[in-house]
């Protein structure tokens, strides 16, 4: 019997109060169409909620989307809480309206990649595929 390969599991989350969900939904759908198991949290998730959902759902990676400018507070908090819960291996990436200066800071805080406006979906899909294999 050949084992059925486990599907890559991804959590797409909207941290904070930001209601702009177009990008998050498009990415969620592209990942699903690429054969991944996608869990979409919906809006207004506190970092604690996101981490809890990620652990419960046993995901390989988390995609955080924010267009309201709160990314510097919320994204690193998710990484910090994951580590605290012993789930630091879950890959965290971000997307949205992120000023260029913030990207190196986010990466230093453990955000593995930042996808700004205009990023091809294909690039995001291959990133998650790699992240899933590494898990």
């Amino acid at each position: 019997m050949v084992p059925i390969p486990r599907k890559i599991r991804v959590l797409i989350a909207k941290p904070g109060l930001d209601g702009h969900d177009r990008g998050a939904k498009v990415v969620a759908r592209a990942l699903r169409d690429a054969g991944m198991e996608v869990i979409y949290t919906g809006l207004r998730q506190m970092p604690e909620d996101i981490v809890e959902a990620a652990i419960q759902e046993d995901v390989d990676a988390i995609g955080l989307s924010s267009l309201s400018g709160a990314h510097m507070t919320l994204f690193p908090e998710v990484v910090r809480l994951l580590k605290k819960r012993g789930s630091g291996e879950i890959v965290v990436v971000g997307g949205g309206i992120i000023p260029a200066d913030d990207i190196p800071k986010l990466k230093r805080a453990g955000i593995k990649a930042v996808f700004g406006p205009g990023t091809p979906l294909g690039e995001i899909v291959s990133f998650f595929k790699k992240a899933g294999k590494g898990a």
């Binding site: 904070g16 930001d18 309201s68 709160a70 507070t73």
Partner: peptide, 10 residues
């Protein structure tokens, strides 16, 4: 607490 990080950003 819900407002954390969001003051005046947009």
């Amino acid at each position: 607490p819900e407002a954390k990080g969001e003051f005046g950003t947009c």
